[in-house]
Amino acid sequence: MTQPLLTVRDLTVSFGPQAQPVRAVAEASFDLHPGEILGIAGESGSGKTTLCSALIRTLPRAARAQGEVVFDGRSLLDLPEREMRGLRGREIGMVLQNPMTSLDPLFTIGNQVNEVLRERGARDTAVEALRRVHLTAPELRVRQYPHQLSGGMRQRVLVAMATATAPRLLIADEPTTALDASIQDEILLLFREIRDTAGTAIIIVTHDLAAIRRLSDRVIVMYAGRIVEEGPTVRIFHAPRHPYTRGLLASVPRIEDDEVVLQAIPGQVPNLAELPPGCAFADRCPLAQDRCRAERPGETSVGARHRVFCWQAEQGA
């Protein structure tokens, strides 16, 4: 087994007073190997975006991050800000959710791509960088302004900028959410291609389970700030063990079935400030027992690289 590129141990991000902090991310631990695509799935409030911000240290100032994040032998949480800045962009690329606001409307595409290339010391020209992400007519695009490009084209430009220096890690936060289905597919393909050609490890964070299933090798499912299940994509989608993962998959209607059925998870996502002492999902869980409400479930291994945080993991397997 190769050395992990990124190791995260007991990462906790808390907000609010020290005495009763609100933990947006609690005790998250995982590894990422070079060239691996990891999907982080979760609904709003699950902490998936906060987790990413903690990795690249772009958290709001009120947040406190504890734990260990080791990237290529360097502890990211202790790195001076100047070194971190050098790392971001050069070795860790980012693609953010909104392709509409991530580009400056006042400058041409070429202008903005060139600026990034120069700053990171890349040798490509803007046209080459845009051709690499299969943007049509790149010679024309460099002279255009962001509003003249469609959402999919803009997202390609952002991917081109994020991967200009062939980073070893690419973090994509909801990169396809605002895009139409066929464009989504193309952008996901582009991510796969970047991994295949440059060996870039990718973390894709999204609530879109279909995107994760298609793209990632491994999946982490988060709920109320905690990892509830982690495993190979095929295992998570075909043999999910956590009741939340099962509920999530069942609540997506499947178009190919004769009759479209849909099972909702009852109840609401809990308020992070008032989490119960036990499992955060217990209130909505069909399998919940007294122990689930009283005691936080620990990690259970349910197969090769497949772990789940649930007291009932052995049931209904």
Binding site: T136, S150, G152, A181, S182, D185, E186, L188, L189, R192, A210, R214, L215, V252, R254, I255, E256
Partner: peptide
């Protein structure tokens, strides 16, 4: 046909790949 292919739960990546089509 393309929309349906893309929406299938088991759809693999790239079912909508176009030979250079444009909007």
């Amino acid at each position: 046909r393309r929309l349906v292919a893309l929406a299938a739960a088991e759809a693999p990546l790239g079912v909508a790949r176009l030979g250079g089509g444009t909007l």
